[in-house]
Amino acid sequence: MISDILAMVWKEFHELRQGGGRGKYAPFILVLIYGVFFPLQTGRSWVDSYQMVGFGLGISVFMVLSVVADSIAGERERHTLETLLASRLADRSILIGKIVSVVLYGWGLTILSLIVGLVVVNLSAGGGHVLLYPAGRAITAVVLTFLLCVLATGVGVLVSLRSSTVRQAQQMLMISWMVLIFVAVFGVQLMSPATRLRLENRLTNTQVTTLVVGAALILILLDVIVLAINAARFQRSRLILD
């Protein structure tokens, strides 16, 4: 099974590398924006605060969303899915190969952006000192961005599974993302001032480690649920009929 998954990852990365026309330059542009432009704007606080973690979480979702819509809908649209399904590969190998490829792409570029960001901040605002991310913050960024990448990929593959074209999948993902942000922002605004204050106090008084562990546990739970739904949904006979 491992070699089957690796074969899928090999193919996905070769396709991503080609990217279709100018798409092959997309990773460089993303790293340029997220790893150079934003750290330059932020300066030294990029390293000193938790800004980097929040930023990493945000860009990891964008990195995943830039490619995940293509995962199944792209195969369907380009008429390669049926041939793939007619091969000896098991459903699980195809699905896991797809998910691993997108996660590695999204998470890898996120980590690369954070590393490039560190170099840029050192060059622009280091003042002759070597600036490093504190270990706890670095681990937090690595773990949480990974878990979030898995979640975004799982949701993206589910949407891609149900879409007949890449464009349809992209639109669905964009709408889902907007709804999520809308609910988060307006949900907080709809709270009564007293509730909001209690929540702020609770968050302020809770240790960062507890918050991080809590967030990680919630993400792990959501990852497991979404991956289980994917496994149930990804069936040859259903995909052929779709």
């Binding site: 070699s3 089957d4 690796l6 074969a7 090999w10 193919k11 070769h14 396709e15 080609q18 990217g19 279709g20 380009r78 008429h79 390669t80 049926e82 041939t83 793939l84 091969s87 000896r88 590969l89």
Partner: peptide
Amino acid sequence: EHPGLYERLSAQENLEFYARV
């Protein structure tokens, strides 16, 4: 029904992928 080839990949890469499969 369709050739089912990965059009972004080269001919050699298309065959290499299925050889790995």
